[in-house]
Nucleic acid binder design. Structure first.
Lengths: 104, 104
DNA sequence: ACTATGTTTCTAGTATAATAGAAATAAGGT
DNA sequence: ACCTTATTTCTATTATACTAGAAACATAGT
């Protein structure tokens, strides 16, 4: 998954899909937004789908892709676990607070 | 950075260095622990160093590598920011709680 | 059935990355 | 100065990934 997110075109796709979450976007819109040729885009979407970072569903003749936030959450949890339980070097609160100053 | 962590040998290195945090490890110990030939290991360590995920310091004739937890924290913060501020789809607390059930 | 549109698969070229043996460099001990 | 140990750089090979045009496939409308 990190390898998948490590490629710039795919990180751009993920960020775009997160902007459009939870509705997601159809391929054509992603394509015109990012300016990536169809076949190249399809290849990247395929990779993101394989590792589970995105979900796909048909909508008439369009394919709608959306970010799989459960999987993203697992990735974040894994990284946290590595950092915290292995080394206690990172303070989760300092990061969590960045996102939700209103809850808690 | 995600690309760097996305390669399996390098993820193994990072996990090992996090286990040994904050002391870190000298190259020879990493090598015997992971069973990676010296030149290959050196190549991977170089990459991790370039993206800032590890720090190096000389210690007599050894080179000691250690995980750069500040940079890791920034990476986590970036991911959180993408997920939370773009989509509000991820609950930071659910992850933060995995690590520190005693603080807060 | 035919046409139009959206998306993928096929194919191939190019670039980047992983691997590791051998030689070179660095630091330390005698 | 020389030898030993630690690590890197050099070099080359092999494998994998990125890119994208063209053709194929899927769905919808007429």
């Amino acid at each position: 998954m990190m390898s998948a997110m490590g490629a710039e075109p795919r990180l751009r796709i993920m960020r775009l899909l997160l902007s459009a979450h939870p509705e997601g976007m159809v391929v054509g819109d992603i394509q015109s937004e990012l300016g990536i040729p169809g076949s190249t885009l399809s290849h990247h979407l395929e990779k993101l789908k394989i590792v589970g970072l995105v979900n796909v569903s048909r909508e008439r003749q369009f394919l709608r892709y959306s970010a799989n936030t459960d999987v993203l959450q697992n990735l974040l949890a894994f990284l946290f676990d590595e950092c915290c339980s292995r080394s206690s070097a990172i303070k989760p609160q300092s990061i969590a607070n960045l996102c939700k100053p209103d809850t808690d």
